[in-house]
Design a protein around this nucleic acid. Structure first.
Lengths: 386, 386
DNA sequence: TTGTAGGCGTTATCAA
DNA sequence: TTGATAACGCCTACAA
């Protein structure tokens, strides 16, 4: 009968074959289909029959339908993959990723699904590995570099794909943020405080770690920006646009990674250049994440610069930094949990056969205690009214 | 032939049935088994035949074996579940959880598996839901309250189970920490600095949020501690033991959750009680996590208490707090990533049919800038030597 | 080197 | 209300 039981299929510790629905059906003297109906509570079964089946199930220690067999049969397995382009510790060091996942989990749990975390590093076997994992849907976050490989591979397999923070790729629905409006507000806020010399610390533009000054007027700099992931591109372009509109000057520095230490280092190159003569001092640093901004605060503290008196620092995300001294960051809040929720809803819609529209979420500029009057500050006219 | 294609199984957007290995085999004029060997690269296949099969596969757009079917056949699906007793955002707000997961992911990825995050809240359907998800193994973290239900249910299904930070339950291997040694060092350190009045902020003892003063001499307090999760129990007992050995006094306060704000609140009850008269001031707060300790720093700052001059604060975990002012916590470092790695290795061992031993990892006491001389401090004799 | 056969455990369909 | 049947897609022991 079961020739391969010892080598394949699910067996228990003691080597015995696991109890299957067929065993239960046999013991209860019913057909497998009836047993299925009874055990699952689907379909009409005579109370007496149901009892007999359940008794047999209890007796034999049947522990429910095998998820794999059921998945094969139904074509759904209750798994939503989250494809990450980084190792977990780094991905999770971004509070926005965490809260996005939380929102996503919330939505997919409502239909009994769970999140499968798939870090897809820059290795060759990554795609095969991904293809061998069971999943009903995949959420692509921050893996722009792979998206043109990933999307077709997943779609062909019948996996529903949703993209977070990225450009549309084929039929893949996208949820992302309106970052431009708030960015412009932020720069306007700083400009009104008298700042005219900005330093911008960008998120890492490429997977191959680089970091350091970024000259967007050079072909090389433009190329780097162009090959960058969507988020970085958008925030950087928005910053450049605002600066230009304000007629201010700006220096860009790329952080090698979205980490506090790298923010500190990047801020250091901005701050130390000014002391090495020649350059005009940067009076306001605009960081593309709160994590990087925290690094800026450290860099400032290390140089005995007071924030915001000597230097204004702004972030992006709206994280609560929990600083003991009560400092709150001037930043742009993004609805990251809601972003995850929306991604979840898009997933569910796709799974239901719909073709949902893209969603763009708003961001909100928030003034904290880290931005203050710059060197050329003049109290605006409208505020002089007695 | 395929009577149910439209309702079941995996179909593509356009409604066409997905290409299967059988289709490829037919097109290539070989048997399904040969096609399997050719596509998977297993077994001996004549080069010409292989080419024919691969060509047919390409032609038909075959995108590899269906993970579900393969899993059913092989009895393994490449999924390691992490069972969490909390919602994701809260679980991930604990940096130790994140780094543990990172280590775990590292190990299981080596065999091509990924992590499935399963938050199992305190609801009824939780167990059924868990049972319906595909998984080869499950790592139980911080779900002591459920473990006696979870373990049998999972074992019966043939799922390998490993426990992090918990007591052994049946045959389930465990990885945990030696927290006692370092805890005693920490209290000794504080005692040598002259502290005799300790405040201890414990991690939440129960899932039902409580928080507030904890009297371990009362039956109620003892009961609360007894029903608490393993980590909390061990850290609290270790603290009580050290305090007793030192002949010092202690007040326990339970944090409602492992969050900065709750640490701040708990510290507040310790600090404000002293000003309300009667009590002798607490001069050193020992928090059971760095997150809680950060809250203590905030509470101290809010009351204009200088750390460590007016108040010493210690933590547990060894997180880098990235505070701008360069403060580093006096704390106990735990090897959380390694803990995850070990959990991963235990999983792999179980999957390989072994019965691995439990593993206990060491922790390390580390002096930072948040502990200093207490009110009764006398420079120890041995340090007076010129 | 290739094909045959059987089965992994379940569930949808249809007929009775 | 129940049962027979087939199929989900793949893999492997064994025979040829």
């Amino acid at each position: 009968v079961n020739r391969y039981a010892s080598r394949t299929g699910r067996t228990r510790r003691d080597g015995a074959r696991r109890t299957t629905l067929a065993d239960v059906a046999r013991a209860a003297g019913v057909s497998a289909s009836t047993a299925s109906l009874a055990v699952n509570g689907t379909g009409p079964v005579a109370p007496a029959t149901r009892e007999r089946v359940l008794a047999a199930a209890r007796e034999l220690g049947y522990c429910g339908p095998d998820p794999l067999a059921r998945s094969l049969r139904r074509g759904r397995c209750g798994v939503v993959a989250v494809v990450l382009y980084e190792r977990l510790a780094y991905a999770f060091s971004d509070p926005m990723m965490v809260s996005m996942l939380d929102g996503l989990a919330d939505e997919v749990e409502a239909v009994g699904s769970s999140l499968l975390l798939v870090p897809v590093p820059h290795s060759d076997g990554a795609l095969e590995k991904l293809a061998s994992l069971p999943m009903d849907a995949a959420v692509l976050d921050d893996c722009d570099a792979l998206v043109s490989d990933l999307v077709p591979a997943l779609r062909d397999r019948g996996v529903a794909v949703v993209r977070v923070d990225g450009p549309r790729h084929g039929e893949v629905p996208v949820v992302d943020l309106d970052e431009e409006t708030a960015t412009d507000e932020l720069f306007t806020h700083l400009a009104e405080l008298g700042h005219t010399r900005f330093g911008v610390i960008t998120l890492p533009l490429a997977t191959v770690r680089h970091g350091g000054p970024l000259d967007l007027t050079s072909p090389e700099g433009r190329r780097r920006l162009e090959t960058a992931a969507r988020v970085q591109q958008r925030r950087t372009r928005a910053a450049a646009a605002s600066v230009e509109r304000l007629g201010a000057s700006v220096r860009f520095v790329e952080a090698a990674r979205n980490l506090v230490d790298e923010g500190e280092r990047a801020a250091g190159t901005l701050l130390d250049r000014l002391s090495s003569g020649g350059d005009v001092p940067t009076t306001a640093i605009v960081a593309q994440s709160d994590v990087l901004a925290l690094g800026c605060l450290r860099a400032a503290a290390a140089r005995r610069l007071r924030v915001p008196d000597d230097l204004s620092v702004t972030g992006f995300d709206g994280v609560d930094l929990h600083l003991p001294d009560g400092t709150t960051l001037t930043t742009i809040e993004q609805p990251s949990t809601e972003k995850g929720r929306v991604a979840g809803r898009l997933v569910l819609a796709c799974l239901a056969g719909d073709r949902p529209e893209d969603v763009r979420l708003p961001t909100r500029f928030r003034v904290g205690t880290t931005s203050g009057p710059g060197p050329g500050y003049e109290r605006p006219a409208r505020a002089r009214t007695p």
